[in-house]
Simulated scan of single mutants.
Amino acid sequence: MSHHAIIVVDLGYGDAGKGTVVDWLCATRPVRAVIRFNGGAQAGHNVVLPDGRHHTFAQFGSGTLRGVPTHLSRFAVVDPLALSAEAAHLASIGVRDPFALITADPEALLATPYHVEAGRRRELARGDDRHGSCGMGVGEVMAYSLAHPDLAPRVGDCASPDVLTRKLLRLRAVLDVSGPPVADCVAAFQDFSGCVRFAAGLPPGGPLVFEGAQGVLLDEWHGFDPYTTWSTTTFANALELLGGAPAVRLGVVRTYTTRHGPGPLVTEDPSLVVPEPHNLFGPWQGAFRRGHFDAVAHRYAIDACGGVDALALTHLDAPVSRMCVAYEGLDRLPVNGGAALTSLPMTPVYATVTDWPSAVSSALGAPVVLRSYGPTSDDKICAEGSVLSGQVLV
């Protein structure tokens, strides 16, 4: 069966390697565009090319260094100021005219400095009960749009200064923040509208790679409250955008389970020292934490997604050998029963792993079709005869 798209989703708390998987897909087959279908500027997908160039992708798709265009769908939260900064870095490492490689749906929500200020203020007010915000205002964008759907600034408003001014004045008043003068924001967002082409729906012609942000264990519906994101991190948004067109649902996991900031990490082990050059302490997220591979949590993520077709397994070069195969008395969490992780003590049951691809495939009930032994596309091995081998996209 041919497929119109591959959807790449993180089955953990984020940082599993979605960016490097998308980069490999774009390097090994003809991809029409990378579609961002959730989240916003808080994403941090690291891509390293074989020649050593590195970029942390936030809103641009992780195929940009391969010349593959990005489309920010109506489910993305677009931050024009952060996008401009990202474009500047891409230009500095050799991408000619990055804005020529990006389109945005006019219905996508806008993130503004006012959302950022309000979100950071809210997180600071939580004190020791912080949720681990990325500090980019995405949660405030979503909350405001739900409370004031007709007043929420959207990408298309950037081409209408009067509409945008009215919405931003109202936004700043409702959120009770200071921030930069509204006129300055309007001018910057008008510049954005002159650089980025607006386009509703998906780019025509396919094939497409859908790049998810964050991870299923942070999902707004299925994550472990209150340590969740205001975003649907499963395959749902991508499938809705595809409207029934066939797609490969590719889940990404790494050989050890990690998360940024507070929240449950059942297998956490402070003695687990693995170099993470691109994952450091964040002033808003907090510490980068490491734990052993948690098959129970990843099974839960797969169930919450409605299943996966295949798996990509990253960080196979890491010196790790333990897998949590169950919690004492429990080997599977019911979907939407994840609250147990924040209310009950969980004791992991471990097994020693010598063959990671086989162990992960067996534990999660899906084939590992892509193995990653390092950060570049040259460090990837695709299983012969798998759903990703050959020209899976047509």
Rank of each mutant, 00 (worst) to 15 (best):
residue 96 R to A: 15
residue 246 P to N: 09
residue 174 V to G: 10
residue 295 A to Y: 00
residue 315 H to G: 14
residue 348 P to V: 04
residue 305 C to M: 05
residue 57 F to Q: 06
residue 375 P to Q: 02
residue 312 A to Y: 00
residue 226 P to M: 11
residue 246 P to R: 10
residue 157 D to Q: 11
residue 306 G to W: 05
residue 234 T to G: 08
residue 11 L to S: 00
residue 47 V to S: 03
residue 232 T to I: 13
residue 335 V to A: 13
residue 289 R to Q: 09
residue 275 P to Y: 12
residue 262 P to N: 12
residue 69 P to L: 00
residue 307 G to F: 03
residue 287 A to L: 07
residue 349 V to K: 08
residue 137 G to K: 00
residue 164 L to F: 04
residue 43 A to G: 08
residue 212 G to F: 00
residue 76 A to K: 02
residue 284 W to G: 01
residue 320 V to D: 13
residue 319 P to R: 12
residue 260 H to I: 12
residue 292 H to N: 05
residue 307 G to S: 13
residue 339 A to Q: 14
residue 71 H to F: 01
residue 3 H to Q: 12
residue 172 R to H: 09
residue 58 A to H: 05
residue 229 T to D: 10
residue 73 S to Q: 05
residue 353 V to T: 06
residue 79 D to G: 10
residue 220 E to D: 14
residue 14 G to L: 00
residue 308 V to L: 06
residue 214 Q to H: 14
residue 30 P to L: 08
residue 164 L to K: 05
residue 149 P to F: 01
residue 290 R to C: 12
residue 145 S to K: 08
residue 319 P to T: 11
residue 183 A to L: 13
residue 365 G to I: 02
residue 208 L to E: 05
residue 314 T to K: 02
residue 78 V to W: 00
residue 140 E to W: 09
residue 139 G to T: 03
residue 149 P to C: 06
residue 245 A to V: 13
residue 265 L to S: 02
residue 154 R to K: 14
residue 192 F to M: 02
residue 206 G to D: 09
residue 203 P to K: 08
residue 79 D to R: 02
residue 225 D to C: 15
residue 132 G to A: 06
residue 358 S to Q: 13
residue 119 G to D: 01
residue 100 A to T: 07
residue 32 R to T: 07
residue 38 N to M: 01
residue 72 L to N: 07
residue 27 A to Y: 01
residue 103 T to D: 07
residue 87 A to Q: 00
residue 99 F to K: 10
residue 267 T to M: 11
residue 222 H to I: 09
residue 392 V to S: 06
residue 106 P to N: 07
residue 167 K to S: 09
residue 100 A to H: 08
residue 198 F to N: 08
residue 269 D to A: 05
residue 41 A to Q: 10
residue 60 F to R: 05
residue 24 W to M: 00
residue 95 V to M: 11
residue 152 A to D: 09
residue 254 R to G: 04
residue 66 R to T: 14
residue 132 G to M: 01
residue 376 T to Y: 03
residue 212 G to T: 03
residue 249 R to L: 04
residue 245 A to F: 02
residue 112 T to G: 08
residue 341 L to K: 06
residue 72 L to G: 05
residue 347 T to G: 14
residue 254 R to E: 06
residue 30 P to F: 08
residue 49 L to H: 10
residue 85 A to I: 10
residue 143 A to S: 14
residue 51 D to V: 06
residue 235 F to N: 01
residue 62 S to M: 02
residue 45 H to E: 07
residue 213 A to V: 07
residue 280 L to A: 14
residue 156 G to V: 08
residue 82 A to S: 15
residue 2 S to T: 11
residue 259 R to F: 03
residue 49 L to S: 14
residue 223 G to H: 06
residue 90 L to A: 07
residue 284 W to S: 01
residue 384 E to Y: 04
residue 54 H to K: 12
residue 201 G to Q: 14
residue 372 S to H: 09
residue 326 A to M: 07
residue 63 G to A: 08
